[in-house]
Write a protein that binds this DNA or RNA. Sequence first.
DNA 1: CACAATTAAGTTGCACACAACCCAATGGCG
DNA 2: CGCCATTGGGTTGTGTGCAACTTAATTGTG
Lengths: 154, 154
Amino acid sequence: MEKKTLRDVPDEDFLRLEHQICFSLHAASRAFNGVYRTALKDLGLTYPQYLVMLVLWEHGELPVKQIGEHLRLDSGTLSPLLKRLEATGYVERRRSAADERSVTARPTAAGSALRERALGTPRRIAEATGLTLERIRALRQELDELTTRLDASA
Amino acid sequence: MEKKTLRDVPDEDFLRLEHQICFSLHAASRAFNGVYRTALKDLGLTYPQYLVMLVLWEHGELPVKQIGEHLRLDSGTLSPLLKRLEATGYVERRRSAADERSVTARPTAAGSALRERALGTPRRIAEATGLTLERIRALRQELDELTTRLDASA
DNA sequence: CACAATTAAGTTGCACACAACCCAATGGCG
DNA sequence: CGCCATTGGGTTGTGTGCAACTTAATTGTG
């Protein structure tokens, strides 16, 4: 019995099959977002804002450009988001002296303090997934590879 | 040697570890979206609009409510989306005679014709993922289970 | 039957994402 | 040195997602 490959599937079935994989990804991403929404409400952060804070907690002061590289986001998304984080008081922005085009962001005192309060959150989320450590790692790796391939063919 | 579980990981590491799984999902979803964006441009559809058309092609006329159940979306998202699909001419909406609260949507002639033109798209997408059939199926199942667990704890 | 609770859509407001722009600063290159 | 292409941020416009609310129709219950 031959192994079934993509080429053996008729177009008709494909409309259904692929509906499953991309949609599943889409749905899972939004489900995660929902869990984070409630988990982060106390901290006054949205999920994308939380991702930015994670990057800043880990790397300290960073130019907008590099934040975008870490998170796969462009200035069109980051500029207003950082402005909101600044309005909330978690982040400071300033023009780089070395390169006047560049703007760097860094956590304020309140932003750094927030890190302590956020420490418990990721564990609760990880437990909500019901996945083991290995499973998480494997899934993460597969998804990252997938992203790379998709970005390459875009 | 004991197997390492979630409980053995210190909070500190979690801020990094968890950054991986949910963010990977988030990024992969957006990468998919990007590939679809270019693939669907010719058809005049966005990716969520395409998902709605997939459902309507498969099930024919459906109440908004049931479309939402298939796609995990509520009326707040679907109402304007369906209005745009109606404006483009791919979908017709009408109040149900049996239940005046309900509104059903179905493909127009143009909407049905679009299906033929869309037949090739999913295969190209699936090939762009670089995944085998089994891998796609396994990934889909794992993501669906993940979504169920996340929704349950929200 | 009357009436409160529920249900289905729709609307409003907010926050991403991202394409398509714009502007100012920088860097090359002749 | 002068000029143009490139680069980093920002703005605008469109389309989701989703919470919170509104409206109208239906259902359930006394």
